[in-house]
Design a protein around this nucleic acid. Sequence first.
DNA 1: CTGCACTATGAATCGCTAA
DNA 2: GTTAGCGATTCATAGTGCA
Lengths: 273, 273
Amino acid sequence: MNNTVILGYSEKELKKIKSNSIDLIITSPPYADRRKKTYGGIAVVNYIEWFKPIAIEIKRILKPTGSFFLNIKPHTTKGERELYVFELVLFLKKELGFMFIEEYCWTKNGFPGKLNGRFKNAFEPVYHFTKSSPSLIKFNPLACGHPVKKESLARANRKRSSAPANGSGMTAFNTDNHKKLKIARPSNVINVNNVSNQFTLKSKHSATFPVGLVDFFIKSFSDPGDLILDPFAGSGTVGLSCIDSGRKYILIDKVSENVDLINTRINRLIEKL
Amino acid sequence: MNNTVILGYSEKELKKIKSNSIDLIITSPPYADRRKKTYGGIAVVNYIEWFKPIAIEIKRILKPTGSFFLNIKPHTTKGERELYVFELVLFLKKELGFMFIEEYCWTKNGFPGKLNGRFKNAFEPVYHFTKSSPSLIKFNPLACGHPVKKESLARANRKRSSAPANGSGMTAFNTDNHKKLKIARPSNVINVNNVSNQFTLKSKHSATFPVGLVDFFIKSFSDPGDLILDPFAGSGTVGLSCIDSGRKYILIDKVSENVDLINTRINRLIEKL
DNA sequence: CTGCACTATGAATCGCTAA
DNA sequence: GTTAGCGATTCATAGTGCA
């Protein structure tokens, strides 16, 4: 069951997947009170209950070395930001037994919008869960590292006139990381601007995450040949990232227009290669 | 009781402050399991219980038009990020009756650390609470807006050859905001790098938030002459921001070295003016 | 005045060691 | 066993001094 796009309900389709068989799961499920036309619009008060059967299957099919990334941000109601996402994260750890590793911050160019009672929203969280201790998790910390800045590198290569005043600090600039790899450790803030798909797609699907964001997690937390799953595939961005990086994918969506769109995008990418 | 620096315990000192008298409260309390030497190191399991009496007083003394900003980020334990901060935010809303307006994201240059099992931490949240509906809250949305980029302004002034294909998007560029004020609406992501205080302070106090971050909230959510409170003043950055922007301040800290440090920094700033 | 060299440090994180 | 404390690692930045 590799490189498949499935039209169906995740709560049913995930049951057909073998336990401990998926290397990485990354998804942006429908947010509460959103996408009413395509996904029915889950109410805030029902959100955890709605997500629970999905989460149980995710935990079952994820490999012990695997990671689960959840992108979700609550909307505002009458000027207040909803808090069901915090409750969901707590539920996944305390009730379902996931380990909560980290919250990443995806920063983007927010929609300018009106000068109303709040600033524009320019970030979304991505929550990172695992089944086992993080020391056992597949992790390539420098896969998405950015080049060390010129000044830092220059300083590393410069001859020291004297030892540092104390034991800390400057010693670091003589490490393999700087001198050989020239790659700096990435941070948990990932800046990828939203891209409009109005010029590339004739579709009404609102773009979820951009491919650059998905790339970051797939490259950092899986290896080529690994199997990646997105149970709410939307426009199929996860599939495109997998093709680019040599991973296999399973994409599930219950909306047939989305599945058509995914196949169109994938075929177009494959033709290019 | 204006422009005062108080040596004392916040849970006691706040009781002396009149109800509905403070325009804005911004603070970064000691995080759980941190600063054991100066603040005793509150355990994760006791954190909400510890913060509750402070929060009750904050709600009492804050004006109905006022805002309360809380900067706190949980540490990691054995590779997992703690979740007590999410529980605290839920508690403040559900049990104490605060309104939760927004989560802001402060991005900074993270501590490099070694190439272990996680990326470096380069952001902290700031949670925004109020006592009343956000439509009643004091808010200057453009106080910290940055100038509109040249290209956006050019587009706004350019004559449209045709109406936009759909109702969204381009219309925003014809607003007063762009054409008259030439100020762009700020976002909820605030990038202020940490600054070393090695040359400005001979002190062991680690700088909490930088003055640029405090400026952002004080200018956006209060007016000149307003009264600002920081119940965990630390090195007194909130006081410096108030002096710069013409606000009055009450700073409280239980560590006498911190109070000395605050007075030194304030006196030095006043001498410069 | 500009530019470059140099330094210290940041609510970091993990793992080892001593108590 | 359990925990507190300390050492090692690491990179962007701003202030300072000097050419």
